[in-house]
């Protein structure tokens, strides 16, 4: 019996070790390596899923030249946190399958995840999510940015997002008069 038990334990450790190896290594534009579980990567990112299915994953680090290390760290962080958040897993897989699935409000942990990001990091993360085809992460980050715009006047939006105003004063004034109900700053 003791021997059997020992065998079982050994088997278990081996399985755990195998599961540990079941990761993909991603390399950021500045050469930093990050590991993320293969299952989470395939589930959350259509691009990574395609690469895993196509066997184009490099064991020494798959090059993601578009993504900086900070953004990739956030992506990996998101994948890991997502793997721990069991209830949302079903939700995510369904939102990937149907591109017209209605938008689901971000969950509490997702809100916290994007709230702690700086402005630059958030923008980089949106681009990374778009590049990797991560629907849910794109949802959450874009939702956060749209919340940042909510309640702001065009001037404030321009300031925050560093956008040049290419309207003439007359045009702006005309539209403002036309649609005065949409502005509460004047």
């Amino acid at each position: 019996m003791e021997v059997d038990k020992g065998k079982g334990e050994a088997e278990e450790t081996r399985k755990v070790a195998e599961a540990d190896r079941d990761t993909v290594t991603l390399k950021s534009s500045d050469g930093k390596l990050f590991e993320v579980s293969k299952e989470a990567a395939a589930r959350l990112s259509t691009v990574l899923a395609g690469m895993i299915a196509g066997g184009s994953i490099d064991d020494n680090g798959t090059d993601l030249k578009q993504i900086g290390s900070e953004a990739l760290e956030n992506v990996v962080d998101y994948c890991n946190k997502h793997a721990n958040s069991i209830p949302s897993a079903a939700l995510i897989s369904s939102s990937i399958s149907f591109n017209t699935a209605p938008f689901k409000e971000p969950e509490e942990w997702e809100r916290k995840f994007v709230d702690r990001l700086s402005h630059d990091a958030l923008f980089d993360l949106v681009e990374a999510a778009n590049f990797l085809g991560m629907e849910r992460l794109l949802d959450v980050t874009c939702h956060k940015i749209s919340e940042m715009m909510k309640g702001k006047s065009p001037d404030q939006i321009r300031e925050v997002f560093n956008i040049k105003n290419d309207y003439t004063k007359e045009e702006l004034e005309e539209i403002r008069q036309e649609l005065a109900w949409a502005f509460y700053d004047d």
């Binding site: 749209s146 715009m149 909510k150 702001k152 006047s153 065009p154 939006i157 321009r158 997002f161 956008i163 040049k164 105003n165 290419d166 309207y167 702006l172 539209i175 403002r176 649609l179 109900w181 949409a182 502005f183």
Partner: peptide, 13 residues
């Protein structure tokens, strides 16, 4: 909240 989109449309052309 249609006012949001109106204000966004006024950000730039």
């Amino acid at each position: 909240d249609p006012a949001c989109l109106v204000r966004a449309a006024l950000v730039c052309r």
